[in-house]
């Protein structure tokens, strides 16, 4: 009996001992001078549902939209630590296009200093400083933007958001049943700077370490473009002939710039394992 008791006690003690040995913190602290990669995955949605091209979505303005194109530029990425210190990604490399049509959803940042990041900041579109540097300062990005339908031709500059498709309006909101095309080309022009930046909290820390790449999974909400803090109704923005809605200039772009500050949230952060699941 006693020996048996001793055996049990010994067994338990041993297991505790082993455990205490094995649960040492495995170098969680970042080593100075090292760096790693960060991946951001932009998961497009509309009012909480996944965005699928060809699918219809009805907003609170009584307008039902079918998206056929949803492309946007995100830029000027900054990673922020708990103490407020920032790492700004090299500007020349910091312009990316997210394109639902071509399935381009990822922003891959390289050589980010190892550390624990709690927030991210980035811009929607192209900032004036960059835009004024002209096409040649950003040749490869300009070419990429042109290939993704993100440049203007009747004006000079980038489209920050290219959102196109068809829509119908609920009769209760003054519509008929006709399906019309819509084009929303958000951007700056020589009168207005519509570039905006957003700061987002990460629900858990993104740990950048050598050989460890956190994946930051963001969600976008395309609905806020028209149905955000300030509403824009497509059927109040028809062209002269009333055949299609076109939003490419003026007050609407300022409204959209403001609405889209709420277009992104971070859903979760996945540390260490690498790519998007």
């Amino acid at each position: 009996m006693k020996s048996r008791l001793k055996n049990i006690a010994g067994l338990l003690a041993l297991s505790l001992f082993i455990n205490s040995c094995s649960s040492d913190d495995n170098g969680s602290a970042p080593a100075d001078g090292t760096s790693g990669d960060v991946e951001l995955f932009f998961d497009n949605g509309v009012a909480g549902d996944a965005l699928m091209l060809g699918n219809s979505y009805t907003n609170s303005n009584g307008e039902t939209l079918i998206f056929e194109r949803f492309t946007y530029i995100v830029s000027n990425f900054v990673l922020i630590k708990e103490d407020g210190s920032e790492f700004t990604y090299p500007k020349n490399e910091s312009y990316f296009i997210i394109n639902e049509e071509t399935g381009q959803f990822t922003v891959h940042l390289e050589n980010v200093p190892a550390g624990d990041y709690k927030k991210i900041k980035f811009g929607i579109g192209v900032d004036q400083q960059r835009y004024l540097q002209g096409e040649t300062a950003q040749q490869s990005f300009w070419d990429l933007a042109f290939a993704n339908n993100m440049t203007w031709t009747w004006s000079t500059g980038y489209r920050f958001i290219n959102c196109q498709g068809t829509f119908t309006v609920d009769p209760a909101h003054g519509g008929d049943t006709t399906s019309r095309g819509f084009m929303i080309h958000q951007g700056s022009n020589t009168a207005t700077d519509n570039y905006r930046e957003v700061v987002l909290n990460l629900p858990t820390t993104a740990r950048v370490r050598e050989g460890e790449m956190p994946n930051i999974h963001l969600k976008s909400d395309a609905n806020v473009i028209l149905d955000g803090d300030t509403k824009i109704e497509l059927h109040h923005n028809l062209n002269g002939a009333g055949t299609a809605a076109s939003i490419m200039a003026g007050e609407n772009l300022i409204t959209i710039a403001n609405n889209t500050k709420k277009m992104f949230t971070v859903d979760h952060v996945h540390n260490g394992a690498g790519t998007h699941h």
Partner: peptide
């Protein structure tokens, strides 16, 4: 005032379908 950049402005007539109707590539 479609363009404020001397470097970029050529894009406009090049792309205009009733002017040069071309693209840079």
């Amino acid at each position: 005032g479609a363009s404020s950049s001397l470097e970029m402005l050529s894009i406009v007539p090049i792309h205009n379908p009733v002017e040069m109707d071309e693209n840079l590539e």
